[in-house]
Simulated assay, not measured.
Amino acid sequence: MHGETSLSSVKAVRSAFFDKLAAKGTDAKAIGDELFDLAELLDGNRQLERSLTDPARSADDKVKLITTILDGHVDPLTLEVAQAVASRRWSRPEHIADAVEDVAIDALLANADARGVTAQVSFQLADLHSALLNLPVVRQRLSDPHAEPEQRVKFLDTLLKGQPLDQITLDLAEHATRNLRNRRYLSTINWVIDMITEHRGRSMVTVTSAVPLKDEQIVRIKNAYRRKLNRNVYVNCVVDPRVLGGMRIQVGSEVTDNTVAAQLQNLKRAVA
């Protein structure tokens, strides 16, 4: 999401509902499911998105519109979230669906918090990300915009059958393929992991290497980035033989690539 107006609005909405979702405990999952459905509704109805984000319409008018559509069909808290996003201003129409999706994820994490499994969900998604990294054909099927959403979900469920995954992990993994929202599957999973680490008051440091890192290497990286960022960090280790050697470290949008593959690519460009 880009644009100061939208960034300010989504931050305000998420902050306003953090405690309310936490108070729902395990029941927050139902709110998340309904908000995911609402995000999908908005994505599929551009006219509705434009109506709810039209700067020429009053906030009250937009709130009345979304209330007419949802009242009596969703949980009162889901309706309250929808009314809140409708009352805000957005830089672009599609950002309202982005905000609804963000709060949906917050709701699922509130469920995970209530059961004490938030860290477990993060680790399971990181393992899924690593497992799919070297399976391009699988990733393509999960990101195929021409396939029906339920076909992609069924394919994912077949892949994950028998895995001891938490329900929230499965919900988030399925959402990433059910509603692509013009994204690739792995990038969505990585974004969700970042949201979870932020939710837990940490930063995600993703380290890609050709071979598994030793425990002492992980500790050094964790300590270095904890000092640099002045907050706790979680190191997500990804093994990718294609990097040949060295490490690629990513924190948010900041990337430090000291892999052999990157150096060879730089050499090729210099020679060219």
Rank of each mutant, 00 (worst) to 15 (best):
G3H: 12
E4D: 12
S8K: 07
V10F: 05
A16W: 09
F17I: 04
A23F: 06
I31E: 13
L35Y: 00
F36S: 01
L38Q: 11
A39E: 13
E40F: 04
L41T: 15
L48I: 09
D54F: 11
P55L: 05
A56Y: 03
K62G: 04
K64P: 08
L65C: 08
I66G: 07
L70F: 13
V74Y: 05
T78P: 12
E80I: 06
Q83W: 08
A84H: 07
A86E: 06
W90A: 00
R92E: 13
I96W: 10
D102E: 14
I105A: 03
A107M: 04
L108R: 00
L109P: 14
D113R: 07
A114N: 09
V117L: 01
L125N: 13
D127I: 01
H129I: 05
A131Y: 00
L132Y: 02
L132H: 00
L135R: 11
R139C: 14
R141K: 15
H146Y: 10
H146I: 04
P149T: 02
L160E: 14
G162Y: 02
L165H: 00
Q167L: 10
D171V: 00
H175K: 02
N179D: 13
R181Q: 06
N182M: 05
I193L: 01
M195P: 09
E198V: 11
H199P: 08
R200M: 15
R202Q: 15
T208A: 03
A210Q: 01
D215H: 10
E216D: 15
Q217E: 15
A224D: 13
Y225S: 04
K228F: 11
R231E: 09
V233C: 07
Y234P: 02
V251I: 15
E254Y: 09
D257I: 07
A270S: 14
